[in-house]
Design a binder for these strands. Sequence first.
DNA 1: AAAAGTATCGGTAACGTTTGCGAACACGTT
DNA 2: AACGTGTTCGCAAACGTTACCGATACTTTT
Lengths: 389, 389
Amino acid sequence: MIKCVKCEQVDSIMKAGYVRGKQRYLCKTCNYYFTLSEKDLSSPSAIKRKRHQTTIIDIAKSLGVSNSTVSRALHGHADINPETRQAVLDKALQLDYQPNQLAYNLVKSKTNTIGMIVPEFHNPFFPNVIIGAHEVLTRAGYNLTIMQSNESYQVEISNTKAMLANRIDGLLISLTQETNNFDHLSVFEKRGIPLVLFNRVCEQINVPKVVVNDFEASFLAVEHLIMNGYERIAHLGGPLNLLVSQERLRGYRAAMEKHGKTIEDHMIIQGMLTQQKARIYGQYLLDLAHRPDAIFAVNDSAAIEIMLMAKEKGISIPDELGVVGFSDNPESAYIGPGLTTVRQPTHEIGRTTADWILQLVDDEDVILPGKRVLKTELIVRGSSRRCGI
Amino acid sequence: MIKCVKCEQVDSIMKAGYVRGKQRYLCKTCNYYFTLSEKDLSSPSAIKRKRHQTTIIDIAKSLGVSNSTVSRALHGHADINPETRQAVLDKALQLDYQPNQLAYNLVKSKTNTIGMIVPEFHNPFFPNVIIGAHEVLTRAGYNLTIMQSNESYQVEISNTKAMLANRIDGLLISLTQETNNFDHLSVFEKRGIPLVLFNRVCEQINVPKVVVNDFEASFLAVEHLIMNGYERIAHLGGPLNLLVSQERLRGYRAAMEKHGKTIEDHMIIQGMLTQQKARIYGQYLLDLAHRPDAIFAVNDSAAIEIMLMAKEKGISIPDELGVVGFSDNPESAYIGPGLTTVRQPTHEIGRTTADWILQLVDDEDVILPGKRVLKTELIVRGSSRRCGI
DNA sequence: AAAAGTATCGGTAACGTTTGCGAACACGTT
DNA sequence: AACGTGTTCGCAAACGTTACCGATACTTTT
């Protein structure tokens, strides 16, 4: 390689034109221009041999036809003599031709790729949604590129930028809990790139959305607790800027009000339910002078955390404390007693979302945005079934 | 009527056959054949308006500089007047310029994307590996494209083809249980595209591999059972064409032999452990005339299935039956009694694999292939701890 | 005064495909 | 012959970027 004559650096050297017929270099680190004398060069061995991929042009040349003919033959277009087509196909096989999707993408302005941005990977929820979406997209011949925003608005923005730069054909996105501004999504509208929101949706932007019946699910869950004789039901909810959290809170309130239960504000806690937070909130609730006799948590990990704490404190479940979670994580079925929870149709969410984006991508006609509401299912287990009632 | 596109004559036009279903005309004066394009006929209104994305050229034009200058300015290259650079940056913002990664990819033959192919999504294992890999790759400025082979050799092949066509910079892959031929992987070597195998690796191909100490883990797991007084230990293993399965079987055998336990062949079952299969095998084992007093299963789902069946049959765990699983799924901690299992460092597997591919991608120098063996941890819970011993 | 260095910019060939339009024939029919 | 019709193929222009190879006009050093 070429070393800077001053700082001996190798990496930061760039060519900087010619001066009187001699190559001139610039070292970016010490900002020094220099040219090399004859003796400095002259090491012809270490030329980086770039691997050549066989292209359409190679096939064309070796067959003595034009590359347009090759292209059409490979794609089964009309206007090609069957013999020629066969010859091209044979030669392609022989030369181990692999089409360059990049060039294709560039000329067609299409990538056959759908992007997906999810806020986190720790709960099984999003991986399961991915399974469903992946299934549909793969069957339709689309690739799926997944990015993770890590619950950060900034990361979400940079993710959407990357998706845009990569010219994905459509985007599936579930927002972070921080996302309150939606300009980075409007860009997709402006560009005519289809967009489907799922799970973590918002009202401020007019695109297709796929959600579950959060309000109804919460309502039924809380009503179920009430039917089992619980009176003082606490709610451990998600961040209130998420629509899902609002809906679930609404459901909680509605059920409580319908059955004439008093809602005590200090028994409603909203926030990001990390494991640590769940423990803190649980501690608070269970140590309350007049503690709740049931807790409706907005995800299963939090609910399970509560159950574990209750056990530590010697509070019996479900007799002294009823617990209901949300999502039906695998562990919820196996903990003792089993955790009553709201099962979400994760695979179906993925499939529905993917189906929708495919319609938008394929059809040029604008399909009216709307909202698909999928049904959840209340899975009743031991944690909320009072034997004495 | 119809004008010749060359000489603008009207009278001397005559029809001259059809080309691809379109009327062909001949101008007799200038002896020129031509057809009419869509835009010549038909109203100019109904033209499908293709959205124009602002490009580097737009910026260059509106600033009166060359596009190479714009390119350099945008990339913070040297050799640009600060004022010019600022002007370019401003204009880019004003015109809402978004770089076209596709064109970049084409000219650089690089996509800044790492591909990952996993056999399944149903166990939390691979999603967790993805989390780790995703973290490392994102930090390094790479995208991650995920495909799923669905345990099918054919799908795996088509996946690798798609990855190749999309010119990913590197591939992370965990093989399907069907994969016995590795030609589709050799292609990557030939192309000089880095490849790292993880978890489901093979010996037939000489590339970096990331695995866990399967042999040792199995050995310790079985030894743990023996130490707890179990004598007749059955093994529920994976498909034997997977190296992991072989290794785990080896570990099982070694531990049994070391402690002088007789290995009964009919107590070793190898195969794909779907839930259904696990039930069938479990049924068989538990109904055996002289049934095993412990079972070492190669994944947690199967182990848990066994535990459930034992409960149904009234076989007490761990007194009458010890159970050990593999992977430490979330539910394993919560089932009663807790399932003793081998925890795999899933995130670390992902991180290690990603780190390795990044090295291979960035450095031109060939790094010798090798094998990284990560440590597992035996998590002892109630399912294998005999109180009476 | 010649030579060398500095600072900024432009022209243009790639990268590998697709595709619209027309050329070049080869027929059959008046 | 002249004309109508069909078949098969080639040319060349995109697609948007990058980077090599310069040019030009100063300033500084030898």
